[in-house]
């Protein structure tokens, strides 16, 4: 498998041809919504191959900004599939490529400093020879985007709609693996949304200086999911106030909800065992994976 550079969407730059196999609609919204939002607010152009109208774009975008005026002004270009890449109702990679090359050229002429391109191509896999066609398209597109000083792209694929082999082959035709931006990062603590499983990854140190942002992020996740995983692999320190906050949060969750702590560092596991898991109703001990420290 090729080694892909993992990059939060906010750190993408021209020349990035990025891959997003979204675990859930939520992850897609977070990544694509931010990708589009960042462009609109900084005078970059967006080319979005979609049959959706401006009002049907990801919530994470439309909550923050009304895309309609941008679509009207041409900064947000929504191109229906029919027009972008279908010939007689079937996927035509050459047309797709021509469309996108033309859009990049137009954006350049219009004076945009960057153009952001995105499309969900999962549907093309159901076409006859869809996988081969898409792979060919990705190869050409990679050649078009990576040397560019103004174009960047996110290819969206629903991994549940393709076979593992298709997924691997498509993934390997990209250089960048795009992720959601960290929900919080101040150099001491980083909180990142995770989507498969849904939850948060905590890295660094969590103490009283960061309880409020932790509580807020946790609430935003538990509001929409019943089973939340907290990946603590790289959590170097957690204070008792944060454990108190976690316990309180778990107790207030609706019945049947559970907070699962994955990859507990040995120090943290020791504290919880000393306190007793029974003093943390609603919290449970999840899996450990290979990159966690051994106990």
């Amino acid at each position: 498998m090729t080694w892909l550079v993992e990059r939060p969407v906010g750190d993408m730059r021209p020349g990035d041809h990025a891959w997003l196999a979204f675990a859930s609609a939520d992850e897609r919204e977070q990544v694509v919504g931010t990708f589009v939002y960042d462009a609109l607010k900084t005078d970059e152009k967006v080319v979005y191959v979609t049959d959706a109208g401006p009002g049907e774009l990801p919530d994470t975008l439309t909550r923050r900004i009304d895309p309609a005026p941008f679509a009207e002004a041409g900064q947000l270009r929504l191109i229906p599939h029919e027009q972008a890449c279908l010939k007689r109702g079937h996927f035509a990679p050459d047309l797709m490529l021509r469309t996108l090359e033309q859009e990049i050229a137009v954006a350049f002429d219009e004076g945009y400093r960057a153009v952001r391109i995105t499309a969900d191509m999962s549907w093309a896999l159901r076409e006859p020879k869809g996988s081969e066609l898409l792979l060919g398209c990705e190869g050409w597109f990679e050649a078009a985007v990576s040397p560019s000083t103004m174009a960047m792209a996110i290819c969206q694929i629903d991994p549940h709609r393709c076979t593992p082999d298709q997924l691997t082959a498509l993934r390997n035709s990209h250089e960048v693996l795009v992720k959601a931006n960290p929900a919080f990062d101040d150099g001491i603590l980083r909180i990142t949304r995770t989507f498969e499983p849904p939850g948060l990854r905590l890295e660094g140190e969590l103490d009283g200086a960061r309880h409020a942002v932790f509580a807020e992020t946790l609430s935003s996740v538990t509001a929409v999911n019943r089973q939340i995983h907290l990946d603590l692999t790289k959590l170097r320190f957690i204070d008792l106030g944060a454990l108190n906050l976690l316990a309180g949060h778990a107790m207030r969750m609706p019945a049947g909800s559970v907070l699962i702590l994955d990859n507990l560092p040995p120090d943290v596991a020791n504290i919880i065992e000393m306190v007793g898991w029974d003093r943390f109703p609603g919290l449970s001990h999840g899996h450990r994976n290979g990159n966690g420290a051994s106990s």
Partner: peptide, 18 residues
């Protein structure tokens, strides 16, 4: 000993344990 880790006094009790 607190009833739960969400109870008041949990922090100082746990600090005494540690």
């Amino acid at each position: 000993p607190p009833q739960s880790a969400a109870a008041g006094g949990f922090g100082l009790w746990a600090a005494r344990m540690l």
